[in-house]
Amino acid sequence: MNSPIVSAQRVSKRFDKFQALTDVSIDVEKGEVVCIVGPSGSGKTTFLRCINQLESIDGGSLWVDGELAGYRVEADVVHRLPDKEIARQRHLTGMVFQRFNLFPHRTALENIIEGPIHVLRQPRREALDMAQGLLARVGLAAKAGSYPSELSGGQQQRVAIARALAMKPKLMLFDEPTSALDAELVGEVLAVMKDVAATGMTMVVVTHELNFAREVADKVVFMSEGRVIETGSPDRVLTNPEEARTRSFLSAVLSGNSEAA
């Protein structure tokens, strides 16, 4: 039997008094591309951060690659995993951030080999070869020696994607990877993401790029106020939504005003 890569079972998460996620249930099958859309503050980023354990969940359960994320259950008692175990679970998942978060004191190439050499303990030669290959794949073979401050936003984000791929993750998470970019740079990043999707990578993408979702997603999840409102094929959710909230969000996005949704 083929179990899903990510299985969120009624996940809840609160910050102090604020309930950020309520009963979120989402399954992501191997090789699937799932796009999460929804208004600002609906908990999309928080959900991604829970998958990658940058936040810990308070309720329900979250399974990543068949393992309970962040916890161990023994005789009906829940134990928090030690930091070392969490770090191990975490590198099954690659994360691409809205603001790139490249390491500014390292060149593009050094950003990519950092994890393979120091976390995966690959030989340097091997890591360098792989990194060169990845840079070529994201169209930046000529920029290996450039520092992030010398790259455009779109180029930085493509390096960040290569850096995540270098860890050979089973799952890639993207948190609004193009929303910090000038309009003319969005396309180059989306093209790289499509290329990654085409290799069969399992991906969870938070995005406001509805055309990308239509074209690439196998499944679209619409979230609002910390809950999953509806889930289905791009066509079902983005073209013929059942819920009123989805419809009002979509019309707001199409009129170019996602914040008001």
Binding site: N52, A87, R90, T93, M95, N101, E114, G115
Partner: peptide, 12 residues
Amino acid sequence: GQHEAAKSIGMS
């Protein structure tokens, strides 16, 4: 974001 990027590639 630097702490998070480091964590996300599995660094302790």
